[in-house]
Write a protein that binds this DNA or RNA. Sequence first.
DNA 1: CTGTTAGCGCCTTCAT
DNA 2: ATGAAGGCGCTAACAG
Lengths: 350, 350
Amino acid sequence: MSSTYKDIQRITGYSLGTISKYFNGGSLRAKTKKDIEAAVARLDYRVNGFARGLKSRKSMTIGLLIPEINGIFATTILRLIVQFFRQRGYSCLICDCDSDTNIEVESLDFLLDKMVDGIITIPTDTSGKHLERAHTRNIPVVLVDRKVDDFDADTVVIDNYSAGKTAAEYLRDFGHVNVAVISGTQDVYTMKQRCSGFVDAFSQLRKSTFTKKNNVRVMETNLTVESGYIAAKDLLTNDNNITAIFCANYELTLGTIMAMKELGIKYPAGTSLFGFDNIEIVRTLSPSITLMAQPMELLAQSASNLLLERLEHGSIFSPKTIMLDTTLIEGNSVSNLFDKANQMKDGLAR
Amino acid sequence: MSSTYKDIQRITGYSLGTISKYFNGGSLRAKTKKDIEAAVARLDYRVNGFARGLKSRKSMTIGLLIPEINGIFATTILRLIVQFFRQRGYSCLICDCDSDTNIEVESLDFLLDKMVDGIITIPTDTSGKHLERAHTRNIPVVLVDRKVDDFDADTVVIDNYSAGKTAAEYLRDFGHVNVAVISGTQDVYTMKQRCSGFVDAFSQLRKSTFTKKNNVRVMETNLTVESGYIAAKDLLTNDNNITAIFCANYELTLGTIMAMKELGIKYPAGTSLFGFDNIEIVRTLSPSITLMAQPMELLAQSASNLLLERLEHGSIFSPKTIMLDTTLIEGNSVSNLFDKANQMKDGLAR
DNA sequence: CTGTTAGCGCCTTCAT
DNA sequence: ATGAAGGCGCTAACAG
């Protein structure tokens, strides 16, 4: 059983009101502070968060709800957010839902039951209706990475469509026509956007330049290294026309690299590779990978600031959406087919 | 502002006590239940966790405290534990401390403040003294993966020393003498144990068999893919005598594989590779990796059961330690130098 | 089976 | 600057 104000009162003689002030920043005599401080130390006293929350209705806790605790993107963002709020006196409560929408709802309720002051989530469910439960209780919600159809709240996403388009244009400018995408399933907001951007860019190309129908083979799989690896291996062993692969997220990029290396296919010489996310190991490989980089810090920071704003100024109305740009990081994983063609004409290298 | 028992009372006419029973499993008339149920639905009522916790002093919540939310081993275990407790009506509260002992203490206090009923932790601090704070409050603690010097509690670890030894003996039996270890720093319990087991096995070897001092070069670095990659690259470019590398955890294994592939060093032909942890992508690579596999499910299950036992039967005394065995998974990443020697004699392969 | 009552530990006026 | 008193929403023990 832990100690309470009463214990401190017994030791110091001060009243409960005075002791409360000590913990909540009232003005006290130096000696009073000292006395209470000593008692606190002696008792190893900690304020009871439940009792405090019961009155103040604030828990100084933020709920974080993400699809997978194993996803590098999510956990990277998560860490930055946790850090942000720790520095401001908030703790974070982390839930993952295994990409299961039922568990997602459960977890949301769990967070609400724990009286979190606000929620930042990468939603799994595409409708997002479950999040209404938070707004009903006047708990602000910030969406990160994925938009949602039926729920309006502050949102931070990157311009996924443009990212896909940029990748496509880059490959096109290097002469690639037969390309493939390794992507997650299209019910994931980011995947759909990135694929659409990519495929649309190539479709326009078809209309204008090419007579033969150009292929954009889109392979959909799970968002894991292993899935990407399997998909890439499948693709590379069965489709010999592909000159370039666009991987729509980090795990898929890594899996594809593993598959290529295993098959002895070098990039860019054998097949060109265009990746996503400038994090972890991919950042240090050589040849370096050409990829679209997301501004992770900015994402985390924007989301955190949006929520903090709501926490400090109340009101859930007129939500903002922030769309951040991705950056093309040029490495050496995409070959220039035009150069190649020229070189062959000139009788140079292969 | 959310609704309370009083609101339900106003609608149904039942007293607070009866309503409380509805939420805590007392026996009520069918009609009474129906009435309350209807009111609850209408109000979208949820029990106030603060008020409940204040009385009952139970939260039906387990605290999980780990070093890094990015570590695959930890998060794999974590998911299994969360699943276990979810099925039994408990929720889990996840904290990571960035491998920072100060944050670890803070996070522990956070968990205690949230009135968790029990804690499962992979400790960062090697002393573990901070965990006393939990026992003082009569909160049971279960340690997973790492032992701790100054705190006695239920513990589940694998036999890391034997794992290292087994790896060493395997390499030795295949004729490897100049070997290297890529490891985390020795202040991490598992790393120290695995390295000791490995190095000891080779030291004995030296005493008995070899005249020349054999090398076990131990490289210590951070427990990330990137660190393993850098260490392996360094090792492989600067030390030509090494015939085999033992990687002491999953991330280091993966990093080493990336480095080898990048340098064009094939395993087992170029340098042999002995890994750790049979998870994720490493499981599917070919040539397959020879490695020591940890029984992840059993680890998670054992830890969960130990804690559940404490939760249901009280008493923190006479803690148990469970030590689980690792399994040698034989792949094709270690070459048999004896065979090779024979083959050369016979004028066969390279 | 249902109602009454007395706190759980803390915060917040309102006095002093 | 300090003390006294009431109540936050819920639980539990005891009546009825």
